[in-house]
Design a protein around this nucleic acid. Structure first.
Lengths: 255, 255
DNA sequence: CGGTCGCTTGATAATCGTCAATTGATGTGG
DNA sequence: CCACATCAATTGACGATTATCAAGCGACCG
């Protein structure tokens, strides 16, 4: 993990490490003000932890490249990934209340982040209305996303969860103007399973099934979505997880 | 649903509807400033919806009495309760990003809330640092809670979920200085099941089991916690859901 | 080249959902 | 005031979804 301070005199100059890596759809004027708050960049290798759950909340982090997971540790040793982060996303937003990080933030790949001191952010935000609105929107959006994940974890079957996940990956790409039909998964099957409340084996079977049905082509971590329409059918519950089982369950609803 | 405006000249006077019903642990000076932002009170009957998912985000709501659920509707008709609210809690915080409510807010019992216009809040917050910190902390705390719920939904067994829920109810009471060993559940078994990602039947069995083991006494919706220690054992996974089954599963781990 | 890691696939089984029957509480209209 | 319907809840029997256990394979690395 290598930290590289950004000297104040360079913070408003191009090229700046955050250029083109701020959250999409940000007013040009705001972009300038945000980059001026950046204190350092940090480079991490795969597996390194940027912030530890329970330690002092003193920075927000913007992902510049690579990917991260937010891991929540249970009392007994159970753990759950509650969020994945990709470039242009902001990490650490759940710390404002208790002033500690609420999850571990761990790099899934060699990554670079930009570090924003919480103090600087809070003071900038307190006399800059657009910046305030942006920060509130960011925290609020994370909350909205977490509520959606609650829905996914609590109400959907395994195939539905997988379809939701893939459609979410597409939506992310769309926001950045990227190709939505091909992307690379930054996480292992096990990590994806943790996030979706499933096991590695179930994830593997689901991906195999997607491939077998021609919904997507999957090679290692490379994913090509071939049939968006079928993916939506999966999400609405039109498909079952195929286990090595021979009989079809009856589909009796109100006739 | 009956709305009762609070005329501006009364907003800074006692008695005020919010008195003693603001979030616990708020500096006295802030309490005054918050009450001045209150625009109306709203009374609801059981089952009435205070805010509809997808409609314009124009108020935050403070629960004064009663209780609420936040319901997320899935595309196909599935639905999930993502949060319960009790007096002194703030609802609607996930709307700042997309400017619409992200869940339905439905009264679980006859309730009264206090309505804060988002516009007034945002402008007050932009030139009042303590108020800003309070709002950020509130949104951030909701996010923290949602992440914890993700952990519960994704990583715990049914008995662990139930124990977590009961312990959370206790913690809520503790924050308000109430008795933590007796409380009333404001929701039906089905609603609790939705929140925990379980069915009504499983909830019922779990409550019966808690009673049979002497962990708690349960009469309708009245809960008396008798053995906190056992409840913690439940949370750490020391108990199974007892179905009408006769054989004990083996407990083989790494020896 | 041995070892670990990520992944796949199969066989088996447990947890929890589904279906069903019953009870008590609540409310409604005749 | 009493059928009658409806709803919340309890309990039992059964079974499907998905976890667990196990074996094997390729890739990467020291």
């Amino acid at each position: 993990m290598k930290r590289q301070p950004i000297p104040p005199q360079f913070r408003s100059h191009h090229p700046h490490p955050c250029d083109g890596r701020l959250p999409p759809g940000l007013p040009a004027e705001l972009q300038q003000q945000v980059t001026e708050l950046a204190a350092s960049t940090v480079e991490l290798n795969r597996g390194e932890t940027l912030a530890h759950s329970g330690t002092a909340f003193d920075h927000l982090y913007l992902v510049l490249s690579g990917a991260f997971k937010a891991v929540k540790l249970g009392a007994d040793g159970a753990s759950q990934i509650v969020c994945f982060y990709e470039p242009r996303e902001l990490m650490g937003l759940s710390g404002f209340s208790h002033r500690v990080y609420t999850t571990d933030l761990v790099a899934l790949a060699p990554s670079v982040v930009c570090e924003f001191p919480v103090q600087a952010i809070e003071s900038a935000v307190s006399h800059n209305r657009p910046l305030l609105d942006g920060l509130l929107a960011a925290v609020s959006e994370s909350l909205e996303r977490a509520e959606l994940d609650q829905f996914i974890l609590g109400s959907l079957t395994a195939p539905q969860k997988m379809a939701c996940f893939l459609l979410h990956m597409q939506a992310r790409r769309r926001r950045c103007g990227d190709d939505t039909h091909h992307f690379e998964l930054p996480m292992t099957r096990e990590e994806l399973g943790s996030y979706l409340g499933l096991t590695m084996e179930t994830i593997s079977r689901l991906l195999s099934h997607l491939q077998a049905e021609g919904v997507a082509q999957i090679d290692k971590r490379q994913v090509h979505i071939l049939r968006d329409d079928l993916l939506h059918v999966w999400r609405e519950g039109g498909v079952d997880l195929p286990m090595p089982r021979r009989k079809k369950p009856q589909q009796l609803k109100f006739a």
